[in-house]
Design a protein around this nucleic acid. Structure first.
Lengths: 350, 350
DNA sequence: TCCCCAATAGAAAGCGCTTGCTACGCATGG
DNA sequence: CCATGCGTAGCAAGCGCTTTCTATTGGGGA
C-alpha cells in the first residue's frame, strides 16, 4: 500500500541500504546511482517512515519547546525564535527538524507529562521556557526528568528560567528579572514616587519572586518603606491587573504609581485607572515588564523593561542544535533594558 | 543501557506482550498481573520508545498544527485551543497526544515541507490554520499533499481556511471573512462615512480577498463609489498599518475612516493618526478585524469583527480527534460578530 | 463427570529503516 | 603480473514494540 524503501530500491535496482544512504547523504554513493535513486523516489512519491527511521537510528528530528501559554506573545515570540533556528542543515534525512510546541499552562504536572512524551519520542533537544515553580518536590521531579533526558541524548536548554539544580548539564539562559525590576522601580523613585503599588504574578514562581525582589531592593535602597499592603499577587493576565488596581486604589488612594508583573497586567491596570477617571501618568504612573509588541501602542505608551525574547529564543535554539557554543558554566544571564515611555511621569500629587 | 519493554517483562515475570498490553490497555489483563507490571514499570523508570511503538502500530500520537506565525496571537489562540482538545483519553500508550505547532511563515513551500514532515511521522491528524495562497500551482500541490495525508490515515482539518479542492475529504471550518468585512463597512456607512480607506492584507491570500470583497460589497450596496486609490495592500503587521495610513492621508486628506485588514494593522493606523495629530474617532474612525485580546485596550477601544478563534480551534481539534461529528458536507462557516467600540463614530467633517 | 468456552498469557512474526561488515571491481605500484 | 587499496554496493542483523495466533487454564452447563 504505502511505498517503502524497498520499493524505491527495487525500482532503482539497488539495495535498500543504498537508498537509505542516498537519502541520508552520509556515505559515498556514486553520482549515477544517486541520480537513479532520486528519480525512483520522485516517481514513486516516496516519503520516509519517520518512526522506522528514528527507531533504527535511535534519534529523532523532533525538538520540544515547552511554553506556559502559546496564546501569549511572550511565549509565542520565544517559540518562534527557537523554531527559526532549529530548522536547517545538519539534520538527518532531509535536514528538517520539527518543533513540537507544548503548552503546559504553567502546571508542573503537565510539564512533566510533556517531558516524558518528549523523552518517549527521543527528542533531539528540548527547550524549556518560562519561570519555574518554586516547590521542592516539583523542582526535583522536573530536574530529574531533565537530567534523564540529557542522559538519553537530548540537549536540554532552559530559556528564561533559572538553572535547575538537578540537571547540571542543562544550559540555562536566565532573564535578569531581579535587575529589571530593580531598574524599573529605581526609575519611578527617581521621578519622585513614594507610594508605589506592585501587582505581582502568581506566587511560587521564580519570575514573580525575582521581579518583586528587584522592586523591593529598589525601595530599600532609596529608603522608601515597603508597605506590604501595596503588593498584590495574581495571574499574568489583564483581569488580574484590572482587579488589583482597583483594590490598590481602595487600599491606598494616595498611590502615585503602579508597577505590574508584566505588560498584559499593566494593560489591565491602565484600563482600571481610566475607568476610575484617573489620568496616566498625571494621576498615576504605570509600568509593565517584557515590552511585548502591543506595549508601544498603549496610550500612553507603556514604560517597561524590554526582554530580548526573540534573541534569547534564537540563541537557545542554536545552542540546542549545537550551532553555538554553550555559555561558560552552562549559564548565561540575559539582561533587560528599561524603556521609558509615556506611562510614567512625575507624580502630580503632593 | 536504556530500559526496554523486555526488561520490564523480565522484572515482572511476564512476557513482553503482556507488558505492551498493560501499557496500551486494549486487551484484558488480570488485575494482579497488571499490578505487577505497573510496579516494574515504576521501579525501572521505564519510558516507552515512541518511534518503535509508532512503527509497530503504524500510527503515532502526533498531531500537526500549521500556523503562519506563532508569535501572532491570532494563531496562538487557535493553536492553544486545538492543543487543549487533542490531549486526553482515547489515545494509545498513556493517552497523551502531542501537538506539533509548525510555523510556516505563510510560505507555501514551508507549508509543503511541514506537511511532508508530518506525513513522514504518520501524524494522527493535521490542523491547518490561516488563509490559503491563491496560486493554482501551490494550491494544487498543497491540496494533493493533504489528500495523500488523508489517504495515509491522518485526519485533516482546515481551520479558518476555505475548503481545498484537491483534498475533498478534509474538513473545513471557514471564517466568514466576507460577511464580516461587509458588516464592518456597513457600520461605517451607517454612521455617515463616505470616504473610507482600506488597508488590505497581502495580495493572493483568500483572507485578504474575502475581507476586501465584503468591504466592496458594502460600498456597492450603499452606492458609495469605490475609489481604488483608497485601497492599499501590505503585510499583516503594525508597520503596514502605520505606513499605509500616512499614505492614505496623503492621497485623500478628506478621509473620515480607515478599515484595517486586522487589529494589528489597525493599531498601526491608530498610531499614525495620533502622530498626525488627528483624533479617533472625531477626525478619523478606525476599524480592525479579529478582536484580538489587546484590541479592547486600544484607546479608544477598537471597533472590530470578533472571530471566535478559540472556539473554532477547539472545534477543529475535536473533529481532528473524531470527538465531534464533522459538519455536513465537511464544511462549516464560522461567523464573526461586529464589536462596535469607541474607535468608530459619526464623521465630524462635512 | 466430561466437554467446551471464556479468560488470560505467551511465542513469534513482522513494522521499515540504519549500519557494521563484507565483497567486488578497478586502478595503481612494486 | 600480482599484491594493495580505495571507492562503492550489498548482506543481514538488529532497533523496540505490536499483534495475530496459539496454548493453557478454570469453570459451568449438559
Amino acid at each position: 500500500m504505502t511505498v517503502t524503501l524497498a520499493d524505491v530500491a527495487a525500482r532503482a535496482q539497488v539495495s535498500p541500504a543504498t537508498v537509505s544512504r542516498v537519502l541520508n547523504g552520509n556515505y559515498p554513493v556514486a553520482a549515477a546511482t544517486r541520480e537513479r535513486v532520486l528519480r525512483a523516489v520522485d516517481e514513486l512519491d516516496y516519503v520516509l517512515n519517520g518512526p522506522a527511521s528514528s527507531l533504527a537510528a535511535a534519534t529523532s528530528d523532533l525538538v520540544g519547546i515547552l511554553v506556559n501559554d502559546i496564546a501569549d506573545p511572550f511565549f509565542g515570540i520565544m517559540a518562534s525564535a527557537v523554531q527559526s533556528e532549529i530548522t536547517g542543515p545538519g539534520g538527518r534525512a532531509g535536514g528538517e527538524r520539527m518543533a513540537v510546541v507544548c503548552n503546559t499552562g504553567g502546571s508542573p504536572e503537565r510539564e512533566l507529562t510533556y517531558l516524558t512524551l518528549l523523552q518517549r519520542q527521543r527528542a533531539a533537544a528540548v527547550v524549556v521556557t518560562g519561570g519555574a515553580i518554586e516547590d521542592a518536590t516539583h523542582a526535583a521531579a522536573i530536574g530529574g526528568k531533565l537530567r534523564r533526558l540529557g542522559e538519553a541524548g537530548s540537549r536540554v536548554v532552559l530559556c528564561g528560567r533559572p538553572p535547575a539544580d538537578d540537571a547540571p548539564d542543562a544550559v540555562a539562559l536566565t532573564f535578569d528579572n531581579r535587575g529589571g525590576g530593580r531598574r524599573l522601580t529605581d526609575h519611578l523613585i527617581g521621578l519622585g514616587h513614594r507610594r508605589i503599588g506592585y501587582i505581582a504574578g502568581p506566587t511560587e514562581r521564580t519570575t514573580t519572586r525575582h521581579r518583586l525582589e528587584g522592586h523591593q531592593e529598589a525601595l530599600a535602597h532609596a529608603g522608601v518603606p515597603d508597605d506590604p499592603r501595596l503588593t498584590l499577587h495574581g495571574p499574568y493576565d489583564r483581569r488580574s491587573g484590572y482587579d488589583a488596581t482597583l483594590e490598590l486604589l481602595r487600599r491606598a488612594p494616595e498611590l502615585t504609581a503602579v508597577v505590574a508583573a508584566n505588560d498584559t497586567v499593566a494593560l489591565g491596570a491602565c484600563a482600571a485607572l481610566r475607568d476610575r477617571g484617573l489620568s496616566i501618568p498625571d494621576d498615576v504612573s504605570v509600568a509593565g515588564f517584557d515590552d511585548l509588541p502591543f506595549s508601544i501602542d498603549a496610550v500612553p505608551a507603556l514604560t517597561t523593561v524590554r526582554l530580548p525574547l526573540y534573541e534569547a529564543g534564537a540563541r537557545a535554539g542554536r545552542i540546542a542544535m549545537a550551532r553555538e557554543e554553550e555559555p561558560p558554566g552552562g549559564i548565561a544571564t540575559v539582561h533587560g533594558e528599561l524603556m521609558v515611555r509615556g506611562s510614567t511621569g512625575v507624580p502630580r500629587k503632593p
